[in-house]
């Protein structure tokens, strides 16, 4: 019995370690590449151990700028991505909280029709409706600004649906107790419903932040101004530097920087995030 337990435990550890290596190796390579200079990155074999140019590269990426004429600042791109991801995540959460609140707690004509209408938009992500959406955004003069970047991505059936499910698990008696206590609908929403779904909101925030951060196609269409480039676009563009060979050390440094904000969000929200996915007690 004891041997078998040791064996199975060793086996599961082996699998886990393999998994970690599989996930971590590309990140390690990114880090290593970001710490060498341009010359070393053109020589074969590529390095597997870090070099001594990490801070030079960091300086280049953040201060001197990248791109053909050193005209793009990674800092600006990070800032754009951050604004976009935050606006998308917060916008989506606000809108879906309110629409789920309306659908669950108010009786109005065609309530279920509205719910299904929202639900059907699940089948219409931006990629499917890209031409009409672009036309609308262009006509509204929202090209090359944060609203054009985010507003079309904000409406969210998934989040609405999720909050609906969360609200449905809140016992009716809680609403009734609040009514007797004298809380109106908005007060109930603010004082009871929001705190009760706090962990779900955090979980959704993490997911949506990363969704927003990783947007590629839409920002590519909407922004022509270099000051509005997002980091994911920026990396792609650096790869396509026409005349020269790509500056791998700077690309990898930018990639490394691009990974930081989502990682920070995940780590800082990890505790409530996991609670939000697993907690059932209301």
């Amino acid at each position: 019995m004891v041997e078998r337990r040791i064996l199975s435990s060793a086996f599961s550890h082996l699998i886990l370690i393999l998994g970690v290596i599989l996930v971590a190796f590309p990140i390690w390579i990114t880090f290593v590449a970001a710490s060498h200079d341009a010359v070393r990155m053109t020589q074969v074999p590529l390095p597997l151990l870090p070099g001594g140019h990490f801070f030079d590269n960091l300086y280049d990426a953040l201060i001197r700028g990248v791109g053909n004429a050193r005209e793009q600042s990674v800092g600006m791109m990070l800032f754009n991505s951050l604004v976009m991801a935050l606006m998308i995540a917060i916008g989506k959460i606000c809108i879906s909280l309110l629409s789920a609140f309306a659908i669950v707690y108010f009786k109005f004509p065609f309530r279920m029709t509205f719910f299904w209408l929202i639900f059907i938009t699940l089948m219409l992500p931006v990629e499917v409706r890209i031409l009409p959406t672009f036309a609308v955004v262009a006509n509204l003069g929202m090209l090359n600004n944060y609203f054009g970047l985010t507003v079309p991505l904000i409406a969210s059936a998934t989040a609405t649906f999720m909050f609906r499910q969360v609200f449905l698990t809140v016992p009716d008696e809680l609403l009734e107790a609040a009514r007797i206590d004298g809380a109106g609908p908005l007060r109930f929403f603010k004082d009871i419903l929001l705190p009760v779904s706090r962990t779900n909101i955090a979980a959704l925030f993490v997911i949506l932040f990363i969704y927003g951060w990783n947007q590629y196609l839409w920002p590519l269409l909407i922004t022509t101004d270099k000051d509005m480039y997002t980091i994911v676009m920026g990396i792609k563009q650096m790869l396509e530097a026409a005349e020269e060979s790509p500056e791998w050390h700077l690309i990898m440094m930018t990639t490394l920087l691009a990974m930081l904000p989502p990682v920070a969000v995940v780590i800082s929200m990890q505790k409530i995030f996991i609670k939000g996915l697993t907690e059932t007690e209301k």
Partner: peptide
Amino acid sequence: VEPKDRKIAMVFQNYALYPHM
């Protein structure tokens, strides 16, 4: 008359306490 104005108070079977307070 709204429940809050009826000068009543109610105790529910499952208590209905606000879980976060």
